[in-house]
Design a protein around this nucleic acid. Sequence first.
DNA 1: CTGTTAGCGCTTTCAG
DNA 2: CTGAAAGCGCTAACAG
Lengths: 341, 341
Amino acid sequence: MKRPSGTATKTEITILDMAKELQVSKSTISRALQDHHSIGAAMKQAVRDLAAKYNYQPNAIASSLSNRSTKTIGVIIPILYHYFFAAAIAGIEETAYAHGYKVIICQSGESYEREVIAARTLFSARVDGLIVSVSRKTSDMEHFKLFQDKNIPLIFFDRLPVGIESDSISVDDYQGAYKVVEHLVKRGYKKIAHFAGPLNITLCQNRLRGYKDALQDNGLPFDESLVYECGFERRHGVQTAKQLQKSNLPDAIFAVCDAVAVGVILTLKERGISVPKTVAVAGFNDDPIATIVDPPLTTTVQPAFAMGEEAAKIFFKKVDGKAKKPVKKILKTSLVVRKST
Amino acid sequence: MKRPSGTATKTEITILDMAKELQVSKSTISRALQDHHSIGAAMKQAVRDLAAKYNYQPNAIASSLSNRSTKTIGVIIPILYHYFFAAAIAGIEETAYAHGYKVIICQSGESYEREVIAARTLFSARVDGLIVSVSRKTSDMEHFKLFQDKNIPLIFFDRLPVGIESDSISVDDYQGAYKVVEHLVKRGYKKIAHFAGPLNITLCQNRLRGYKDALQDNGLPFDESLVYECGFERRHGVQTAKQLQKSNLPDAIFAVCDAVAVGVILTLKERGISVPKTVAVAGFNDDPIATIVDPPLTTTVQPAFAMGEEAAKIFFKKVDGKAKKPVKKILKTSLVVRKST
DNA sequence: CTGTTAGCGCTTTCAG
DNA sequence: CTGAAAGCGCTAACAG
């Protein structure tokens, strides 16, 4: 790629330019910039001054290529606009920044194809590690093998995949669900329905198990017809709540997440069904919307920010070579009782 | 960086490996992969097969360095967890992906320092363009000059900076505010307060002007003591609403955004003040939370997704060399009346 | 249609 | 303490 000399090119100041000006070699500039011990204080200062003068900004692309490390963590999540994920990302970013890493986020939009593309893109971008919460459409995990094969740290959070052995951080969904449902039973509700999430996702299976066991352990029958499978969005709660027959209402509903629970409350109220008098509703997440709905939602607190932090910490453990075996961490949840139950 | 031959290195398949295997040159592989016209169909197929066999993933770092283009757009926003920003990002991503670009997002967290760091980081990452919504703490715009100096497309959206000439996409905040307040006046409210955003932000100034003019054009006085400056978060609405004296309540409040409006409604209700009977409340954005609060919030629709799309479109116009002059686009808003007024 | 070759900007060994 | 030089993986102008 010979460039006709004399032609104006995009003027980007490089270490070579600075080297010429200071009459030293590139290496010296490079080392000075990295505060390498073998460079004299005077030289370092001169380089820093010059860099400041030209507002030099290192070319991260070039240095990544040379270093074979980008100092970035890739993150794939289903959707940004969910408090849980936004908060988890904040947690990841916080600890990444503290270690001098950047993070690059991709949304799968709950689409398997997008998730595959995102994984490839991030691999091509040569991220140093990948943190992911799988889409609800994902069952084939082949696209993650790329990372495992190359020994690139791969950490799953919240939505764990089946059929792939890897590091992960999640919450005790079983126990969380168990506690909400137990609370419902103790409040005297007898006919408790569950609006479950997509049951191909382990987390949803676990919440369902928690629901089932809590019923049975408390002397209530498990009735399959009271389990409705839906999605994670408000609109799924709305749809499902609309299907409920007024003549045959449950007296409480445990929804897989707060967004769904909110959809349920809104729809019930619209249909003239009083919450919690006629039907009580509980969710999962402790999304800020839980305190916006009327009545405020009983739910279980999922430590989103902490999960993000934890995921990033696992990454750094892997990078540092500690923890060779997959680490699988599970955080506890806690119940918040509000007026919806 | 000589590497002792024979030592196991991280096994990353490159075009060179494939070139050797097919007994052709790197260039041929490179061209075949890019579907270059000067490569025979047979050769192309052979290369594709081999690439598939090894699950070859191009090294984007290397190609960026060579191409002097990363095919990525950088985005800086104050905060992810706001419907408006999340939706705008979705709009940006959609159009970016359609053009084969990726996007990398940074949150400033409303901190000036973080914003500066983000700008530098994205510059170092050599993004091909930058789309930003400035933090509320930002008044110095020096960090954006980097991009302007190098002729890297720089597009501001929603929160426009003062003192820097650049492309932008925003909404007609003046008109939006005007319409809400006019609606309030027509509903018969007389003492209309405004919970304004940080007034160093132009968008907030514009909404304030709209408020003021709508009052005066409709024969109501502008009373400075009815303007409260607060932030953009729910908690700011809560704080400010708590300061209101019960003996001296306005009969309507126009909040700078829905999050604040929600804080106001919640607080008013908690204090036993009925909404909208005693005090009406209106917001701005049409965030989904507007339909969760009780009563549902009157607000003005800001086309968040479209703004993101538009911002990206401006970027591509710049890249294509069309549009040399700064393009400044302003979108219209529309009013949605709900039960809170 | 294909190969040779000179880079992209930075890092790092090795040899002073 | 400093410089020369090779190399990271890919691209593209130029010459067959």
